Simulated scan of single mutants.
Amino acid sequence: MRAIEFAEYGPPSVVYVAEVPQPHAGPGEIRIAVRASGVSPGEMRIRSGALRDVVPVTFPFRTGFDAAGVVDEVGDGVAGVDEGDEVFGMVGAATRGANAEFAVLTGWAPKPAGWSWEEAGGAAGAVETSTRVLDRLAVRAGQTLLVQAAAGGVGTVAVQLAVARGATVIGTASAHNHDFLRSLGAEPTTYGTGLAARVGALAPAGVDAVFDCAGGALPDLVAIAGDTARVVTIADMDAAAHGVHMSHGAPADETGKAVGAGADPLAVHGLALAVTLAGEGRLRVPVAAAFPLAEAAAAHELSETRHARGKIVLMS
């Protein structure tokens, strides 16, 4: 089968299409014929080498964390899903490999009828990441959350999940994305110089938590939150220097503890809630662009611009 991988650290051009053996579902797993899969911003940093001291890599590295498709193998011990079912979900964090024609999922949920394949293919990673961070920040009804880079693939989903929890959400984005953020339920503002004053005008009582999806502004974000413990980033490699937690997912070892430096357990439970919210019309997955597998390098290039509004996906 065709799959996307890279065999060295470097720019988007190191990504290529490889012919690899098909994977098969083991106990507790399912295999899908992939229709669409997500391009993960976190994997841009893995590919570039920026995370080499945090996330161990064995080359060649197969890319892709989330996918959607049709079930064609059901592993031992799996109930509630049959061959032919349409699902979305995630592969093992250690093995990856969702950017392919077939993928083995370790966590999944039924594909919402209202989602296209493109939306479903890019959903699980953003849902898992958003749920993981919102859980760590304990975001709940009545609170105010600031989402930095709210128009991106994770930010758009984080806004909607926080709104669903009953939180008031302020989201930063370029001015041309402000109406888009309002449509998701956030109060928009621009990022950059003067952010604290703009957020203060929108939230005179202050914000309770900050979810940073961009990086590069932690001193301002900590000042806005008033406490490093109230800020979580998924994008700033200098987080530790600012006393801020950088959240990334990792598989669990035999004791159930997440492995990898500073890793948080995967929030797979978020997928079921996403299905419910999608069915109620309260969660959509904005798609910035869809590329065929053969153009995976171009998808990586677009992701690295950090100007894509929503998810970038690959179509199998």
Rank of each mutant, 00 (worst) to 15 (best):
G49T: 06
E280V: 00
W117P: 04
V91M: 12
R306G: 12
P41W: 02
V154I: 15
P110Q: 14
F61H: 11
G153H: 13
G121C: 06
A36E: 02
F6W: 08
G185C: 15
G155I: 13
A25K: 08
V17T: 10
D264R: 14
V71I: 06
A120G: 08
P21T: 10
A98F: 13
F88T: 09
A241F: 04
L218R: 10
E254T: 05
A288M: 08
G122E: 02
G49D: 10
L137D: 12
V14L: 05
V34E: 05
A235G: 06
R165M: 13
V133T: 07
A298L: 07
V74P: 13
T106V: 14
P41Q: 05
P204W: 10
D53M: 12
F61V: 04
E5R: 15
K111S: 09
G142N: 09
G194A: 09
L105Q: 09
V232S: 02
F65I: 06
E128D: 08
A298I: 02
P204T: 11
R2W: 01
I312C: 11
P11E: 07
A299N: 10
A100Y: 09
Q160A: 04
A7P: 03
T172I: 12
Q148V: 01
S116Q: 14
A197P: 00
S13P: 01
G75C: 11
D236M: 12
H178L: 08
R136P: 00
F6Y: 15
V313Y: 01
S130I: 04
L181F: 15
G125M: 07
A33C: 10
L273K: 08
V81M: 12
L221C: 06
V159L: 08
A33H: 13
A141H: 08
P112M: 06
A50V: 04
E86D: 14
